[in-house]
Every structure is written in structure tokens, then in C-alpha cells.
Amino acid sequence: PVEIKLATILPVGTSGHKSLMEMRAAWQKAAGPAVKLTIYAGMADGEPLLVKKMRARQINAAVLTAVGLSEIDRSVSSLQMMPMMFHDWNEVDYVREKIRPELESRLRAKGFEVLFWADAGWVRYFSKEPGAHPDDYKKMKLFVLAGVPRQMEIMRDLGYQPVSLETEQILPSLTTGMISVVPVPPFLANALQFNRQAKYMLDMNWVPIVGAAIVRSDVWAKIPPELRAQLQEIATVAAGKIRTQTRAEDDDAIVAMKKNGLVVQPCTPEVLAAWRAIAQRSYPMIRGPIVPADIFDQVQTALAEYRAASAAGTP
């Protein structure tokens, strides 16, 4: 049988993991003993390490966010690493469909097939002190995930005080005051209890967390084409489910945190405009060094298309 070893950082028991297990059951029904899918959930390794393991054939599939996917091909960072580029999920969905063939063919050129695309919430600013305007946050120390020096530089150039830390250091560092702002999606803030220290959330979509399940092309090719199409279909169904669930989970997390005293800071039009201006200033630093220039331009073209169409009332 073809053995697919799929690793994910999703912990056992989360809704995402349950959906993957359902997909596994459906695959088994469709393929019988021809394909064996093993899911390694809750992998504590960082995403770059999972990519290394796939390259070494220790595992041959993984669910990754754009952080890991852009280790394989930088083009994927276009969906996650441009602040304020997308306003809402509709825009993300539209643009992703537009550039998907391009992203998938680039990943294929690096030896990986995309099983499905998924996402996991919008990054929002959680802070210890109230804040809305970008200048409010320039006085606070801002968390940046360790191992991404470029992001440090960008945030510094925009006038912020970034401090690079590991995820597990966030909560204690909030306590000691080493950092006071954490940009994370609400479900993560809730799960890791950041809201105990950072009681203010700015109601503004900074960047979406976007990801995909990928599998090594050489392994995938061992499955007969008809069966492959069938499995792909099942995966797409699972992805739809994961997407709906995670989007709902983010809203639920905000409700839960509000009950525990989270203050949601509204994002007025003036505040939004100020943030957009800041984000605009970061684009020249991102286009090229982080997101390949041609993909960056494709995203902007697609967005312009979408916005023109929705302004005309036909999205």
C-alpha cells in the first residue's frame, strides 16, 4: 500500500484534528487497503522542521500555515504576510482562487501536491493597555515570533518596538512586561490564555492565517489517477468543513474572552485609515524580499478586480 504520513501541529482533539480523522476514515472507505494514511497530530516541532522532515522523506505530507509553506516556495507568503492587504474572508477566498493555480504549480515544481487549502482566523492586536491608533502601539513592546528577522526589521522600520520570542514565552513575558502587545488570532489568544494579561483587543483584521495540506508528489503519484481524484475530492470536502469550523471558532473565542473581561476596542474609520497608511508603508519592504514581486502584483490586480466588481454590486 501507499503509506501517507501526515504531520500537523494541530493538537489531538481539536476540531481541525477531528476533521482530519474524518477525512482519514473517508479515504479508507474509498481506497481500501491501497492507501494508508497515518496522522501525526500535535507535532511540537516548528513548521520549518516539518518541511525538513518531508524533504528527508521521514514524513511525506503535512498541514502547514504560510510560515512553513513559504519555506518550500515563497509565493505562498502572499496570502498571509502582507498586513491589511485583505479586508475580509471574501477577499481572501477570491484572491486565493485566482492565484491558486500559480501557487500550486510552483509547489509542484518543488515536489509537493496541494491536497487542500485552509485557514485559521485573523490576527488581531491584543494589548495590556488600551489602544486603537497605530501610534498608541508604538509606545508598547510588540511580540514577533522568533526566527523571522525580516519581520523584526519591518516592524522596527515602521516605528514599533519588536521583541522576538518563542510562543511559549508570550504569557510570562506579558506578565513581566517584556512585551505588551501580541498580534495573534483570537482562538490562539483564548487557548493560550493571553487575554489574562492582554485585556484589550483591537477589532481589526491585520493578516489572515492561511495554510494548506501538502503531500510529496512522488508519493502521491504512486496512487492510481482515478483514486487520486476521488481522494482529492474527499480532502476538499474536509477542507470546507475545517474552514467553516475555524472561522466560527474565532468568533466563539472572542465571545468567551469577553465573558472573562476582554475589552474589544472598536476600529473607527479614522483609525482604520491610519493603520492602512502604516501597512502601505510596509509593502515596498515586503514586495521582493518576502513575497515574490510578480505574485505580489497578481494579488493586487485580483483585489482591484474584486473591489471594482463588488462596488458595482456583482462580486
Partner: peptide, 10 residues
């Protein structure tokens, strides 16, 4: 005085 050496941890 600044935000330090970005790649120092690496």
C-alpha cells in the same frame, strides 16, 4: 537604544 540585532538569536 534601537531594536537590537535582528539576527542575533539566529
Amino acid at each position: 537604544v534601537s531594536s537590537g540585532i535582528p539576527s542575533a538569536p539566529d
